[in-house]
């Protein structure tokens, strides 16, 4: 980083079992003017207390065993340190572990053979709100996103029956054959809320059943990705 250039300081906490990795990373990260190491320890039961008061924006973890198995450390860290972005480092090129990390809320995944510069880059990127993953997993991520989008109805800003975006989304999901229970699970709502939405949609569309609702509310030329 050039001298005098404005930079944003990223506070990093290293929670790594590999002592050599920990010590070398502290040395490497401490040389960067835009990175401040606020903690560097191996796992101990008191580590969550340390993390809670650390004000770290990025937490580096190197042990999938600790991170995802048993009581999920990633979830615990996110609970005690809400703004923290977790980066897994020293990872194997293993798709199952990668998806486990993504599901648990990890924002960065750096492989074992990555250079120190790649780790520094991941810290900066994740600290500024981006996500980092190895290029070998890009294809599978794009495929997952495509699948998700294909099963998500498109919504219009202005609907002829005056349906809100959420209401249009619900109509689209009924069109895919989903039940209230499945829609509630998909949208993270209660079943009761889903029913209330449908009552409002029926009123706006002037219909009394789902078939009529789809007929009336779904745009005829609607295409899904």
């Amino acid at each position: 980083m050039s001298q005098g250039a404005p930079y944003r300081l990223t506070h990093v906490f290293l929670l790594t079992e590999n002592r050599l990795l920990r010590e070398a990373l502290v040395r490497i990260l401490s040389k960067r003017v835009d990175v401040a190491v606020v903690g560097a320890v191996a796992f101990a039961p008191t580590v969550l207390d340390q993390l809670a008061t650390s004000q770290a924006e990025v937490v580096l973890l190197d042990s999938p065993g600790l991170a995802f198995h048993g009581p999920c450390l990633v979830a615990s860290i996110r609970r005690v340190l809400a703004p923290a972005n977790i980066v897994m480092i020293g990872m194997e090129r293993d798709e199952t572990t990668f998806f486990r990390a993504v599901r648990s809320g990890v924002m960065g995944y750096v492989l074992k053979d990555a250079s120190a510069m790649e780790i520094v880059h991941a810290v900066r990127a994740v600290g500024s709100g981006e996500a980092v993953c190895p290029s070998c997993f890009s294809r599978v991520i794009v495929q997952c996103a495509a699948q998700q989008l294909a099963s998500t109805p498109e919504v219009a800003a202005f609907h002829p029956q005056g349906l809100s975006r959420r209401e249009q989304q619900l109509v689209g999901l009924v069109g895919f054959g989903l039940t209230n229970k499945e829609i509630a699970a998909r949208l993270n709502l209660s079943e009761r809320t889903v029913k209330n939405h449908f009552q409002r949609i029926f009123r706006k569309a002037g219909v009394h059943d789902r078939m009529a609702m789809i007929e009336r509310c779904q745009p005829r030329e609607a295409t899904n990705i």
Partner: peptide
């Protein structure tokens, strides 16, 4: 690993 050791020494 090699890079880490190099950073050390």
């Amino acid at each position: 690993m090699r890079e880490l050791v190099l950073a050390t020494i």
